[in-house]
């Protein structure tokens, strides 16, 4: 059984249909990429899966380990092991990064039945992970994403992923605005998570990130539905030929 199973999912914003019957299955241990042109519904897919308000699901289903994902609150989805790396990580002035990370981690540990971490234990783990991501330690003291450069924000997302150890990571255009070094760090972060019980859905416009995170499957999203699926070679074909050919198909 797939870890994430989306069947005929449709959704709209303000009465406008964005997702138009998506079906997609990501088995445990696999990494899938969803590619598509601007406006194809890529970000909507990630928000609907994570439970953001303002998106109305008009049909279909999404299950996670057989559990109805769409019935859960955003924090319940997170606790169940779903992680969304935001395309535009939100700034939280006044909320310290360390406090934020520890609160999030403990909330998730609690649902997993693991003991909460005290400040010392947390700092030890956080420092290790940060080092691996070449993040300066003072980022812990700053407000969440406040004054972070684009690259720092994305690294902060990957740091959170490394700490929260999700079973399914959705990376929403994580590659946008990253230089090649930052891209490699992010890719290493994701690859380090690879395990039989870890899956990822990489949402991207370009094939660039997929040079570093090799997907098991590639799906092409056009006008709110999957029009083509294939192996990693599909990403290269798209890079070469553009979306025009698949758009016609849709």
């Amino acid at each position: 059984m797939g870890m994430l199973k989306i069947e005929n999912l449709s959704a709209e914003i303000d009465g406008k249909t964005i997702l138009n019957g998506i079906s997609l299955e990501v088995p445990a241990g696999e990494i899938h990429a969803v590619m598509g042109p601007n406006g194809s519904g890529k970000s909507t897919l990630s928000y609907v899966l994570a439970g953001r308000e303002g998106y109305e699901v008009t049909g279909g289903s999404a299950t996670f380990h057989g559990q109805d994902l769409l019935a859960l609150d955003p924090e319940e989805r997170a606790a169940a092991g779903l992680f969304l790396a935001f395309q535009y990580p939100v700034e939280l002035p006044g909320v310290g990064n360390a406090n934020f990370l520890r609160t999030a981690l403990n909330a998730i540990r609690k649902t997993r039945g693991e003991p909460e971490l005290d400040a010392m234990q947390f700092l030890k783990i956080a420092r290790e992970r940060m080092k691996a991501l070449s993040m300066p330690e003072d980022m812990l003291k700053r407000g969440v994403n406040v004054g972070f450069s684009g690259g720092e924000k994305k690294r902060n997302e990957v740091l959170q992923m490394a700490l929260l150890r999700p079973q399914l990571a959705i990376l929403d255009e994580t590659d946008s605005g990253l230089d090649i070094d930052a891209l490699k760090i992010v890719a290493d972060g994701v690859n380090a998570q690879r395990a039989p019980d870890f899956s990822a859905l990489i949402i991207t416009h370009y094939q660039r990130l997929l040079d570093y995170i090799i997907p098991d499957r590639v799906h092409v999203l056009v006008k709110g539905r999957i029009v083509k699926s294939g192996g990693p070679e599909l990403a290269h074909a798209l890079e070469k030929e553009g979306y025009a050919s698949v758009q016609e198909a849709a």
Partner: peptide, 28 residues
């Protein structure tokens, strides 16, 4: 709403997320 969602998407329950944002607001 974006801040609230971000916190909840990281697994922080809604009431806790609100409390964090209220404190952050007063922090300055």
């Amino acid at each position: 709403a974006d801040q609230l969602f971000y916190l909840r998407a990281r697994g922080i329950p809604e009431s806790e997320a609100k409390a964090m944002l209220v404190e952050a607001f007063l922090q300055e």
